[in-house]
Design a protein around this nucleic acid. Structure first.
Lengths: 312, 312
DNA sequence: CATGTTGCTGCCGTTTCGGCAACGGCTATA
DNA sequence: TATAGCCGTTGCCGAAACGGCAGCAACATG
């Protein structure tokens, strides 16, 4: 099923790889063929699409416009293919997910496992990265679904859902704070804390609150891995901060205790956004998984804050 | 600028014309070339795209799926072209509008004239038809912007805005009712009325209300043209029903009087929807006109019902 | 200065495309 | 019932596009 002119596909490969020869290797054709198609495209558009650096190619402004068009075409072709395939009964395809670390402990593995139990022919690609990298992956067409902290998102992305979770302190079962129902930031800072590095969005949630306090927190551990922070907390090294999403199993095993943060009487929210490219219709199997993801996160949000009104 | 494989363009032409030879004439190529591209496409998809009837070709289910994809590709190509052109400064292109008759008296001509005053290189194509035909034109990709009565719209269309206007009686200046501020349907039915035929949506708005009344209305004139109904009312033939949108100039000249309908104390609303294809990003010049259209209709809605809360 | 990589360009065989003419199937009309 | 007019398809052939190979200059790296 190769309707579209080779120029489109070659351009797409060159954009992704950043080099003509690399694209040629991926495409299993001679580099000269790729080079000629790019030159032909540039002649038809009437403007250069790439800037030729010594180390490879970079998109020009016009090139980025064409890249957007080509992405729309190829992604919609995928959708068409899946539509035709669904006529024959079987769903098959790959769902590509980019998400932040908090989802990897239970939400994502649970969902993928359960989805694959029902649709065996749908496979998954997942990539864990920072929030802004998640959005960039989506924009570049390298992922279908993105889950990130709900910051401001570029206009080419659409926020499918926004779910909010309480930020809390995570401590070992034996920790002095462990018996409380909630904690304030001040109470936590009396103990050694495990701080997030600026690459994690937790840092940007807590930093303004810490800055408001009069006392300077005692020297603590800093880390850039939710996973590591959780395991450190489990070993009683200190107080970590994150949402309840990331400590599912350890919380079940009662090794860790989650204490919602209380900031002058009000909770501290961590907003999670689910994103897709705006100019795109998802294939049926991807849309199906997306719905389940939104439902699941909505359920966890509800379970966690029964009193709080639902976010859309 | 012809990046896309000829098969795509040929398929599109065949779908629009419903015949291979007709498509070949439009495309200025031999019919054999068109036939071969279609056959090649069908071989690549693995299923027939058209049913060969003696009188031409009709899309199969798979064909309709491909038509959707091809439409997305070609419309997005248009957008890309306009994006590149806007880099060079000048906007140019064609905005294609499908709308119902109520807009033709003042809204549309005013807007188009004013828009062309500012963007001389943007031209317009307008087609007046019934509400359901408007939606169908949009779905088939024959129009960019559709204005129709806000019925239920197919899922491939997006309702950009919904504006509501009061339905009212339209009478000549000398008519006995002309001095009132509002009228009830019963008061109107005491006089000869000019009824809309079922093809006009006004029929479907008024019919339920008339059915509720005990008395049978006296024999009246029936028509399927807003224009004709208005002119008949201006000549004192009877009472016509429509929104204020359609009687702009005649109302200014004081030949016609618009009397909002009062149905048991509440107004009778006529909902106007503005639609575009959902799976599409509009070219900049089209988007610009669309915004003006929404703004203008919103302003008329506000002007007409200052008390009524705005519709989104 | 040597080496490796980059994109680009003649040359040439292969594939694809399009035009012409003809064929069989069908409809409408005489 | 015969005929004229469309319809889509096919065989043939020249033209255009495509892709592979080898070699070029430009640049970076060591």
């Amino acid at each position: 099923m190769r309707f579209h002119s080779p120029a489109i596909q070659y351009f797409h490969a060159v954009r992704r790889t950043g080099s003509i020869r690399a694209a040629a290797r991926v495409l299993n054709v001679a580099s000269s063929a790729v080079s000629r198609q790019i030159l032909k495209l540039e002649q038809e558009v009437g403007a250069p699409l790439f800037e030729r650096n010594a180390r490879g190619l970079t998109l020009t402004t016009v090139g980025e416009m064409l890249a957007r068009h080509v992405m729309n075409v190829l992604q919609d072709l995928d959708r068409f293919r899946s539509d035709v395939a669904s006529l024959s009964g079987t769903w098959h395809g790959t769902v590509s997910i980019a998400c932040i670390e908090s989802l990897t402990e239970s939400v994502l593995p649970d969902l993928i496992a359960s989805h694959r139990g029902r649709a065996r022919r749908v496979s998954f690609t997942t990539e864990v990265k920072g929030s802004s990298d998640v959005l960039e992956s989506l924009s570049r067409g390298e992922a279908d679904i993105g889950i990130a902290m709900a910051l401001r998102h570029p206009p080419d992305l659409r926020q499918v859902a926004l779910k909010r979770f309480r930020l809390g302190a995570v401590v070992a079962r034996e920790h002095p704070l462990a018996r409380r129902k909630t904690v304030t930031l001040e109470q936590c800072l009396a103990f050694p804390v495990i701080n997030a590095l600026p690459e994690l969005s937790i840092y940007h949630l807590l930093q303004p609150l810490i800055a408001q306090l009069s006392e300077t927190p005692e020297p603590a551990i800093q880390a850039n891995s939710i996973d590591l922070m959780r395991e450190l907390a489990a070993r009683g090294v200190g107080v970590a901060f994150q949402t309840q999403l990331g400590i599912g199993r350890l919380s079940r095993d009662s090794q860790l205790v989650f204490l919602p943060l209380d900031n002058a009487g009000s909770p501290v929210w961590s907003d999670l956004g689910i994103y897709v490219r705006a100019e795109r219709t998802l294939p049926a199997y991807t849309e199906s998984f997306l719905q389940e993801l939104v439902r699941e996160l909505g359920e966890r949000e509800r379970r966690e804050n029964p009193a709080y009104p639902q976010t859309p």
